[in-house]
């Protein structure tokens, strides 16, 4: 069986600085995979490379065995990989409902249609309402997304990413800046919407990581130093030295 995501000797440089220095990683279908690492390790850059926001400098990214390196983001999305962002990235002047609907239009095959009236598309609107129900924003669906609270915007962010039914979902620090209770809710939400899909996430909150992930990869200075089950990562000496230890001292 081919892996959902396969990275081979992936590299990225900005000018003379190499940020990602030959990453090899294989993420199996249906796995919940977390990428952890100290600040500046290149986690977000890695996400941008996989999702097409940045072009790769070397190596390949494969999605279900198909090379997707350097494809534009919308092509990658159409092949079934969807992502959220670390900094909330929504359509602020559009209503919550419309935000989610934008995440559904392409997969419902509307493309750039100017011959369908959007409010008449029953199936699309019903599915949108379902997703909004799932992310718990039904009572807020008609207000502009820009005026939601931070936690609500994060939930919306995840909702947009997951709405389209992509089979690989990438979440970049989904719980960053959240309170404890908000984090718990977010975890429950992520668990629910990634059911039966592949999840790749960057996360700083170790509680979330060990709670949610099937496997964890540790990225330090642009290299994966370990990729294993949560227990083995927790017990790994190398990881503790490179990362967890450093975190504890802080």
């Amino acid at each position: 069986m081919t892996a959902a995501i396969e990275l081979q000797d992936l590299r990225k440089s900005f000018g003379p600085t190499e940020i990602i220095r030959g990453v090899n990683l294989s993420i199996a279908d249906g796995e919940r995979h977390a990428i952890i690492g100290p600040n500046g390790a290149g986690k977000s850059t890695l996400f941008h490379l996989i999702s097409g926001r940045y072009n790769v400098s070397g190596g390949t990214v494969s999605l279900h065995g198909e090379n997707i390196s350097n494809l534009p983001p919308y092509e990658i999305y159409r092949k079934g990989l969807s992502r959220s962002f670390q900094v909330t990235n929504i359509f602020p002047n559009m209503s919550v409902f419309e935000n989610v609907r934008c995440g559904l239009m392409w997969v419902h095959d509307y493309k750039y249609s100017f011959w369908h009236l959007i409010d008449r598309q029953k199936e699309l609107n019903e599915r949108t309402a379902e997703v909004i129900e799932e992310i718990g924003l039904t009572s807020r669906q008609h207000i502009p997304a820009g005026v939601l609270t931070y936690a609500e915007q994060r939930a919306l962010e995840i909702g947009i990413a997951a709405a389209g039914g992509a089979d690989v979902i990438m979440l970049d620090e989904p719980t960053a800046g959240m309170s404890h209770s908000e984090t718990d809710q977010a975890i429950a939400l992520i668990r629910k919407i990634t059911e039966g899909r592949t999840l790749v996430m960057v996360e700083h909150d170790m509680g979330v990581v060990f709670d949610l992930a099937d496997r964890i990869s540790v990225l330090v200075y642009g290299e994966i130093i370990a990729s294993d089950t949560p227990e083995n990562i927790r017990n790994s000496k190398a990881v503790q030295e490179a990362y967890l230890g450093a975190e504890a001292e802080e």
Binding site: R53, P72, Y74, S82, F85, C102, W106, Y112, A161
Partner: peptide
């Protein structure tokens, strides 16, 4: 940018 990540060029 976000529009590109929901499938639209």
């Amino acid at each position: 940018e976000r529009a590109e990540f929901v499938g639209y060029s």
